[in-house]
Design a protein around this nucleic acid. Sequence first.
DNA 1: CTAATGACCATTA
DNA 2: ATAATGGCCATTA
Length: 97
Amino acid sequence: MKFNERVYLIVRKIPKGKVSTYKQIAEKLNCRAYRAVGNALNKNKDKNIYCHRVVKSNGEIGGFNRGRKEKIRLLKKEGVEAVNNKIDLKKFGYKIK
DNA sequence: CTAATGACCATTA
DNA sequence: ATAATGGCCATTA
């Protein structure tokens, strides 16, 4: 379960009002485990982790264990505007350290 | 061990 | 724009 912990660690770093993509997180970890990242977040239900700040590479919302609607709501609440269920990564994308 | 699954990605038609 | 294809990796059955 080392993988999950790393994922959470990264996700935790995402500041409010910004988002990141599964791919970027994966790249920061191993380089190509996009899917594994998604899987990890799906299983995890820790509220301390901002799973909703992770979206697809193309800017789409992606999935969410509580439904994409809820995900959008949470993001909007933090100042991230979702247009047509998509997010402008140029503006809200967080460059991972 | 193998096989199937998934909150994915990129390319091609 | 959508649909199909192949690839990718960790987890789970």
